[in-house]
C-alpha cells in the first residue's frame, strides 16, 4: 500500500505524529531566528556549534594551505632573491616615510589637544589568515583564523596593506567571521581626503566596486579622489584608505550623483588581513604599556 507515512517511519517512534513534531521544530527554529536577529542572545549556542564545525573548516582549508606551502618550498632561489631585493627597497621606502609620519603624528596630536578633540588611532595589530572556506556566495564574507581567544571582538576593523577590508561580525573561540566593506549590507563612514567632505560608502555585493549614493550633484568630488575612513561610526579607525573614486555621474533632475569607488584593499584576493585594536578601546586595560604619554595626550 502506498499510504504516505502509513506504516513505521520517523513518526512511529516517539508517539507524537510527524506533523506535530514538524510544527514544534518549526516553532523552535523561528524563535531561534528571532532571538538571533534581535541581539547577541545566542552567543553561547553559536560558539558551541562553531567549535563543532571548526575541524571541518580546518580540513577544507588544509589542502589549500598545503599547496601554498609546497609552492613556497619549491620557489626558485633567484625569484626569492629578486623578491628579497624588492622587499628591502620597499622597507627602506616605508621607513623613510614613517620618519616623516612620526613627526606629523606628534604635530597632529598637539593640534588636536589644542582643539580638545580626540581621534582614534590604530594602536595594535594582529595578522590573521583568511581560511579558504566559501561562505554564502551571495555575500561578501570570509572566515579568519583568529577568534575571541586572541582577543578579537565583534565590530573590530580589518585592514590589509592597502586599505580597509571590513569588520568582524561574529567572534567565535577559534575563528571569526568578517563582513567586507563590499557586502551589500555594509555601510562605512568616510571622508574625501582632498577636501574632507564626509559621506557614506556602501557595498554593492561586488568586490571591485563600492557606491557613494549620498552626495548631491553639487558636491566637490572628482574621479581619482582618495576616499579615507572618517572614523565617525566609532568602528573603524580614521584616516585609512578605503578606495579611489572610479566614476562620477552627475544626474541633473535627481538629487544625488551616481558615484562609484574602487576599493583600495584587495578584497577578493587578500590572504592575510590585519586586525586592528584602536587606541581608545585599549585605553582601559593597557594604558601604560607602550605609549602612555601619547594616549594621555590623545585624550
Amino acid at each position: 500500500m502506498i499510504a504516505p507515512g502509513g506504516t513505521g517511519g520517523d513518526f512511529a517512534r516517539g508517539g507524537a505524529s510527524l506533523g506535530f513534531r514538524f510544527f514544534l521544530i518549526c516553532i523552535v527554529s523561528l524563535s531561534l531566528m528571532v532571538l538571533d536577529h534581535r541581539d547577541e542572545h545566542l552567543r553561547t549556542i553559536r560558539q558551541a556549534f562553531s567549535v563543532l564545525v571548526y575541524p571541518i573548516q580546518l580540513a577544507v582549508d588544509l589542502p589549500v594551505r598545503g599547496w601554498r606551502w609546497v609552492d613556497a618550498a619549491m620557489a626558485e632561489r633567484s625569484a626569492l632573491l629578486t623578491e628579497n631585493e624588492a622587499l628591502k627597497f620597499e622597507k627602506l621606502d616605508a621607513g623613510v616615510r614613517l620618519q616623516r609620519l612620526d613627526a606629523l603624528e606628534a604635530e597632529n596630536r598637539r593640534l588636536r589637544a589644542m582643539l580638545d578633540s580626540s581621534a582614534k588611532a590604530a594602536d595594535r595589530v594582529l595578522i590573521a589568515e583568511v581560511l579558504a572556506v566559501d561562505l554564502d556566495p551571495y555575500r561578501q564574507r570570509f572566515t579568519i583564523n583568529r577568534g575571541s581567544t586572541d582577543g578579537v571582538y565583534v565590530g573590530q576593523a580589518l585592514l590589509d596593506a592597502d586599505g580597509l577590508v571590513g569588520q568582524v561580525m561574529h567572534a567565535e573561540p577559534f575563528t571569526s567571521e568578517a563582513v567586507l566593506i563590499s557586502d551589500a549590507d555594509h555601510a562605512l563612514p568616510v571622508a574625501i581626503n582632498r577636501n574632507g567632505l564626509r559621506t557614506i560608502v556602501i557595498g554593492t555585493g561586488d568586490s571591485g566596486r563600492l557606491r557613494m549614493p549620498y552626495l548631491p550633484n553639487t558636491a566637490d568630488v572628482e574621479v581619482g579622489d582618495l576616499i579615507i575612513s572618517s572614523g565617525l561610526g566609532g568602528v573603524f579607525p580614521s584616516g585609512y584608505p578605503v578606495g579611489y573614486v572610479s566614476s562620477v555621474e552627475r544626474r541633473p533632475g535627481q538629487g544625488f550623483s551616481e558615484i562609484y569607488v574602487q576599493p583600495a584593499a584587495m578584497l577578493d584576493r587578500a590572504r592575510e588581513v590585519l586586525l586592528v585594536w584602536t587606541a581608545e578601546t585599549e585605553l582601559t586595560d593597557r594604558h601604560d604599556a607602550e605609549r602612555p604619554t601619547s594616549l594621555a595626550e590623545a585624550r
Binding site: F22, S29, L30, L32, M33, R46, Q57
Partner: peptide, 21 residues
C-alpha cells in the same frame, strides 16, 4: 541546519527551518 547556519554565518535557525521543511 544549525551547523550549516554556523558555517555560513546565517541567522541561527535559517537553514535549519528550510531543511526541516
Amino acid at each position: 541546519g544549525l551547523l550549516l547556519d554556523t558555517l555560513s554565518g546565517a541567522l541561527l535557525g535559517q537553514h535549519a527551518l528550510a531543511l526541516v521543511v
